[in-house]
Design a protein around this nucleic acid. Sequence first.
DNA 1: TTATCGTATAAGTAAATGCTTATATCCTTA
DNA 2: TAAGGATATAAGCATTTACTTATACGATAA
Lengths: 111, 111
Amino acid sequence: MKSTIEEVALVLKLLGDKTRLKMVKILESRECCVCELVHLFDMSQPAISQHLRKLRDVGLIFESRRGQWVYYGLNRQYENFPFVCTLLNQLPSQEGLLESLEKQGLRVLCD
Amino acid sequence: MKSTIEEVALVLKLLGDKTRLKMVKILESRECCVCELVHLFDMSQPAISQHLRKLRDVGLIFESRRGQWVYYGLNRQYENFPFVCTLLNQLPSQEGLLESLEKQGLRVLCD
DNA sequence: TTATCGTATAAGTAAATGCTTATATCCTTA
DNA sequence: TAAGGATATAAGCATTTACTTATACGATAA
């Protein structure tokens, strides 16, 4: 079933911010913890948290605490996920960012 | 070639407004003059003009004056048109709005 | 020319947005 | 229990946004 124009407009508004759009594209590759994302954006940690909250509030991403870290990932059960997916498919991959994080030894692994 | 994240974010921001998104979906069906659009939205004429201007400024729609009327239509040559198209395809048709305009005798025809 | 219709622009405003710094909370570990 | 790291929340602020009303502009027609 198609979403209403209003619903779609809200999703587009949410993703109409370069920081959030990039975040979502990154989280499409793999879950990340907040401190990893802080390293990927030239922005304060609270700013990152606030963007993540907006994305989580609508259900587009999920949160999972692991020890003292909080991981976020794309919620593929989100009602508008298929729609979001067609958007993300048209974006250039951001996996290089994650690779360079690892090269810098900034990847957080807590298992 | 894929657009950058920044470019896409700007397009999404532009379409992340329910009025503009609906406008663009309507203009996908056919060109409309400003006064027709004014009838379709519960908003002043200047507000409609201002939305149209934003859409035109990026090149997503074009303007064509016909007598004292100004028509707007989707610019299918817009650089991100294919992207916009995949968005519009996922929206419910708004052609019913145009039909009811015609039933009310509010369709403007200037040929 | 003047009146009128359709549209655009100008100016003002309330609300939303995206950041900042400061501080609180939560978890782990010594 | 106390300290410290990771994250969230609070409060403040400058900018942007989406409207409004008033007015200017452009085309048509009496």
